[in-house]
Design a protein around this nucleic acid. Structure first.
Lengths: 351, 351
DNA sequence: CTGTTAGCGCCTTCAG
DNA sequence: CTGAAGGCGCTAACAG
């Protein structure tokens, strides 16, 4: 098994089923049967073929199999940012379920950019992936519905069906926003900032809506109780940190802030510390997601927990079910829950 | 890994280049030229073909192209755990560089299990991916070298070349371990625990080695200064939390602990808090990686920073360079740096 | 400029 | 149980 000399940078063509057949002195279809219908081949022949495979270093050619009609072993997944701990957990859930089914996972971050999202979708469709799990960055689902209609199953992740004929896994964001607001209102806060992204992401709009409903339900005037502050993309710790100035500049100053996720809350805490504002003494902070580190922040973060890993697993499950005979599209809905820790307290008197 | 589930190919067959040709009343090769050599086709014909594509909903068939010899647009990436924030950042760096080159990324978590790793490698090879970026879970590189020899480029991620004929991107872990130990020794600690994983991961062995060298350099007896405590897989916050008991049971009790990553440090902090042990008053804690949340923990974590995103980008860069003519395998080496924060202090007197 | 042809590697008939 | 033949969708060569 010496290396080919000649210094050619081109990859050597891999051994095909034919080389194997030649080496084992059988026909190609026998080799194919050894691979796909082992029971149909005589044991001695099979042995010979298997030895030949090892000898020539045979590796199945996935492209040829797929071309011939085999189902793809790849699923795609498009999230806003795979490095964000929330999505990283979701993605891991997807990966684990797919692995159990013998599938691989392509991941992509859209960074809430439609062009990027479309690009990924196109490439994945061309590859003929088994399906695509997507957390849509915009509110238009028609492109995804068309994609699905063309034969590539689509499952919405962390997004409701919204009437579209697709499978979906969602978390009740209106409820989640309400939980955060109820908690702060119960503590006595009457001036609350909501750090939402400016990109108009559906989940954030819903949380905002939940917050407003909660305020109305408490008989408060939303316009004077709630201050919405957009967080520019990308939503990193540094960006969130820099938004603190804006929050503090609002007059009258809010006594509490609801962040749209725990990473933003992390930046918020850092910025507040920089400004010497004690949390929760002078400012209560609520996060969203309950990622791993939330419990151990300084102070421990009050936040709204979402099922992350389970969200991913459930989405993958729906995708795998797509090609089962009488499949019906369905939505799975999770409910978030409030986790109260140390970053929230009643507002300072006279605050 | 489980069996393929379901898989009845009920999907409608996609429109092929032939339908397009028919609809545009040209030959298939003209359609192909519109796709791949647009300049060679008359504008009016091209228009006609493009309209026909839209009409029949044409989507390129990646499998057929690949079979015909087109380079794959997919790269693979195998990390220990994609949900771990360190690897999530690395992976994002890889993804971004690949996207610039028009490539997609398959990710997989090995969870330090050889069988899982081999399974992924085989599947990726069968797919004919453009190359595989891998953070090897074991110390045996021969399988990877063979894989590379068969035509699938392999780049080691966060791992030195170790003499193998592969590209690699590494961080100097011996140095990193030394940084952590030097810092603690300078503070006066003489009884230090190292929480290494029991799986014998190369990077952790190296860090342990760096720690020992640092102690020897300081003229200390390693066996009485260092206590190595294995952390069982999986290395989650909860597991690390549960190891705290072991650390505290060591006699004489260590006054400082070096954790093999920040997630473990997170669990350590939680466990120590549970036991009512003040950090750094009764126990100093050093992490590794400097992930996003390290700065904001309670107390802010002293840790050894690794370039994460850049590590990923560099690895992807090497992979993309693999098929350039005259390519030589090379190693890129980064240097970690110590970030001192609030979780370390001199040992308590009489500690 | 456009059309024809011959496979890429594999799998599924259908004969033997 | 094994062998021969055709074609999946596409593209590189050549012919017109």
């Amino acid at each position: 098994m010496g290396q080919d000399e000649g210094g050619s940078p081109q990859r050597a063509r891999r051994a095909s089923i034919r080389q194997v057949a030649a080496a084992a002195r059988v026909s190609t279809s026998t080799v194919s049967n050894v691979l796909n219908n082992p029971d149909v081949v005589a044991t001695s022949t099979r042995r010979r073929v298997e030895d030949a495979m090892a000898e020539v270093g045979y590796v199945r050619n996935g492209a040829a199999r797929q071309l011939r009609g085999a189902p793809s072993t790849i699923a795609g997944c498009l999230l806003l940012d795979t490095a964000n701990p929330f999505f990283a957990e979701v993605s891991r859930g997807i990966e684990d379920r797919l692995t159990e089914a013998g599938c691989l996972l392509i991941v992509g971050s859209t960074d809430v950019r439609a062009a990027q999202e479309n690009n990924y979708l196109r490439m994945m469709e061309e590859l003929g992936v088994r399906g695509i799990l997507v957390n849509p960055s915009g509110s238009r689902l028609d492109r995804l519905v068309r994609l699905s209609g063309r034969g590539t199953p689509v499952v919405l992740v962390d997004h409701p069906r919204a009437g579209a004929d697709l499978c979906a896994v969602a978390v009740d964001d209106v409820h989640g926003g309400g939980l955060a607001a109820d908690h702060l209102l119960a503590l006595g806060h009457r001036r609350i900032a909501f750090l939402g992204s400016q990109a108009g992401i559906r989940s954030l709009r819903d949380r905002g809506e939940g917050i407003r409903r909660s305020m109305r339900k408490a008989g408060l005037d939303v316009s004077s109780t709630l201050v919405e502050i957009p967080v520019p993309e990308p939503c990193t710790v540094d960006v969130a940190d820099s938004v603190v100035d804006q929050v503090l500049a609002v007059s009258p100053r809010p006594t509490a802030v609801i962040c749209f996720n725990d990473v933003v809350a992390l930046g918020m805490l850092r910025g507040l510390r920089r400004h010497g504002i004690p949390v929760p003494g002078q400012m209560s902070v609520v996060g969203y997601d309950d990622v791993q580190f939330a419990e151990q922040l300084s102070p421990a973060l009050t936040t709204v927990r979402q099922p992350k890993y389970q969200l991913g697993r459930a989405a993958a499950e729906l995708l795998l079910a797509e090609d089962r005979p009488g499949h019906q599209h369905q939505e799975i809905r999770f409910t978030p829950e409030l986790v109260v820790r140390a970053s929230t307290a009643p507002p300072a008197i006279g605050g």
